[in-house]
């Protein structure tokens, strides 16, 4: 009898594992961001709740859970309610083919990288819905900026992933990691260029400084999530940090060798590499000013995309020359 339900139970358990990992990871990243920013800015950061403020995120979560959920008057209710889900669900789904370890993966799809890239770009829909549904002009501007930005940076992002796919000869995430066994991809010059392009466009994809234009604290207050409060705001927050983890984890598996490591391949290496990328992005965030909308767009179309295309061309030529 029990054996009959076991596969479903296993599936459920995996789902719970992924969800709790996402929640804990987001909470940890929020704490880490506060600590990193504090370090950069000569501060201490949260210190009161728990040792070195490590429980601060839990306290914040409790606060956000208990907060009133305010619906702005004149909001487009359906859009407004659905937006946080459209933002949160895609990054959660992307964990489906995230290669944590040699066997530690929910399902190794043969179109893995394509799946991750396409599912995470659904987020822009949620952001635009949030901007539109809030009935707030700042949110609307934020949503429009976000749509333009994410669509533009999707192009160089995918082109840089394409170089990896060409080099590895597979779309499967595990296949890409296995292809790096002789040499991690970012050590090859053409793939290093792809790595840099990937990092820049991924930063833009997740709206982080210097591309935090949709949120733009000093211009648009908080952009598309200005009107959200309580748990709905928390969902945007979780989505933001989950996305941060995903781009870093994808960077780790596409360019830095994923779970491969000098001693024994394991999920530990994978997480370490992902967190190094995250720490780098955080360092960037707390140092640089923000670029302007038109500067960002022209950078995407006039610099990044041509360079990425050229890189694809060179890689193709190299592969053909190699035979």
């Amino acid at each position: 009898m029990i054996a009959h339900y076991l596969p479903y139970l296993k599936l459920l358990l995996k789902g719970v594992c992924v969800l709790s990992f996402i929640a804990v990871s987001a909470m940890f990243l929020i704490w880490l961001e506060r600590k990193v920013s504090a370090k950069v800015q000569n501060r201490l950061g949260p210190m009161i709740t728990g040792p070195h403020g490590s429980l601060q995120s839990i306290a914040d979560t409790v606060k956000l859970l208990l907060k009133e959920n305010i619906v702005p008057s004149g909001a487009d209710r359906l859009t407004w309610w659905l937006a946080p889900f459209f933002v949160t669900v895609p990054p959660v789904t992307a964990f489906l083919c995230m290669p944590f370890g040699p066997t530690f993966i929910v399902r190794d799809l043969n179109v893995g990288i394509l799946f991750i890239c396409s599912i995470t770009s659904i987020c822009v829909l949620g952001i635009f819905m949030a901007g539109w549904g809030s009935n707030n002009k700042y949110s609307l501007l934020g949503g429009m900026r976000s749509a333009a930005q994410i669509i533009s940076y999707e192009v160089p992002l995918l082109l840089s992933a394409l170089v990896v796919i060409m080099e590895a000869g597979t779309l499967s995430m595990q296949g890409i990691v296995h292809a790096q066994e002789p040499c991690w991809f970012f050590l090859k010059p053409n793939l290093f260029v792809a790595f840099v392009i990937y990092l820049i466009s991924a930063t833009a994809e997740v709206n982080r400084v210097p591309f935090d234009i949709p949120e733009a604290e000093s211009e648009l207050v908080a952009g598309y999530h200005t009107e959200y409060s309580g748990m709905k705001f928390a969902m945007f927050f979780v989505a933001e940090y989950t996305n941060l983890f995903i781009i870093s984890a994808v960077a780790a598996s596409l360019f830095l060798g994923g779970w491969l490591g000098p001693i024994r391949p394991s999920a530990g290496w994978f997480l370490l590499k992902a967190y190094v990328v995250i720490a780098f992005l955080m360092w960037i965030r707390w140092t640089l000013p923000r670029v302007r909308m038109d500067q960002m767009m022209s950078f995407a179309w006039k610099v990044l995309t041509p360079v990425a295309l050229l890189n694809v061309l060179v890689t193709g030529w190299l592969l053909v020359a190699k035979g």
Partner: peptide, 17 residues
Amino acid sequence: FAQDLGAFATPLFYALR
């Protein structure tokens, strides 16, 4: 001014120090 340009809080904290 740097804060207005989106260099969030870091120059401000340096100057306030």
